[in-house]
Design a protein around this nucleic acid. Structure first.
Lengths: 178, 178
DNA sequence: ATAAAAAGTGAGCAATCACTCACATAACTG
DNA sequence: CAGTTATGTGAGTGATTGCTCACTTTTTAT
């Protein structure tokens, strides 16, 4: 990955997150990245290719986070770590994950990111087992419940990202699982 | 509201929900509605005006649903009715509400629909009181929790709209509040 | 050093899109 | 009925956009 390639990806990510994919012209990406427009197409074929490259990074990063949760041995610790995941994602790379979540609603990339990825499935399986070990009578439904909750949490985090708010709500959610 | 005006709105709604606002040309709306393209602009000024007209309907419809919940006297019944709200919205007018939810993530209409409307606030207040009456120690946090949960539920409903799934998950959620 | 491959440029093209406008028809109004 | 307003048409326009391509510069390989 060239220095300019990374620069293009970073800029595209920032602009896509800020203005949306369809409303961000490749000319603007080139301008703000300080490269010629043609270079974008040389490296990423077309505008969709740019998005695909950004999404490929999503999988890598998610993989790291999930494997850290898998490493935990205590099932309750796994559940709590999962609850903390959205806030962690947003604190580390806000724009990147905001783009991910906004994409969930776009038809084009419906089968790509966060939601139905291998890691999502792996995590679901893990937390199902965790709930089972913790003695919950309906672990599958419990996981679905948690997924929905964290989905909504992500949505809240995008609007109200103050540290105080995050800590309060995380503590409250965790208090429901002990 | 003319017959053709309604036809345009319906068609625009369907196409916006299916393909997204930015990627739906006004020419296609006109074509599928069986009217001339110029008529769209005569009635709705510009493409944004079309969207605004659609969003104005959102407020009306939500108002009906919220006032029905307000009319209930039992606080637990209010909570349960709120839990059923997303599924109700989707069963009645799927495309319409899908568009609403997808819009949440678009910068342009961030201050418009579902989320921060008067009715959202009214409902939040109502359910806060309901939780208080039910003896929950932290009613404000409890409401936020429920909002997030229902947000995530909406997201699930869009992907997996089978009746069986909906009934199962609704029953499970409601079993948490009694 | 030289050739070949890769990286980088930017003017320009074809297509698309939101929107206009001159005009036609239909619906009210007195 | 005549006059006025509202509704409806669709070809045309200017601006924008994704993308190409002929070309230059830099890097790599031998």
């Amino acid at each position: 990955m060239t220095e300019k390639q990374e620069l293009i990806l970073e800029t595209a990510l920032r602009l896509f997150a800020k203005y949306g994919f369809d409303t961000t012209p490749t000319s603007q990406i080139a301008k703000e990245a300080g490269v010629s427009e043609g270079l974008i197409f040389r490296h990423f074929t077309n505008k969709d290719g740019l998005m695909d490259a950004i999404l490929a990074l999503s999988d890598e990063r998610m993989s790291t986070h999930v494997s850290r949760i898998v490493e935990l041995t205590d099932p309750l610790a796994q559940v709590h770590a999962t609850i903390e995941l959205p806030a962690k994602l947003f604190s580390e790379e806000r724009e990147f994950w905001m783009l991910q979540f906004s994409l969930k609603w776009q038809k084009k990339y419906k089968n790509q990111p966060y939601q139905a990825s291998t890691h999502q499935l792996e995590l679901t399986q893990l937390i199902t087992n965790a709930f089972q070990k913790l003695g919950y009578p309906e672990p599958e439904k419990e996981v679905l419940f948690l997924i929905m909750l964290l989905d909504g949490l992500s949505s809240q985090l995008m609007r109200q990202p103050s540290d105080e708010f995050i800590q309060t709500i995380l503590a409250f959610i965790k208090s429901k699982y002990r």
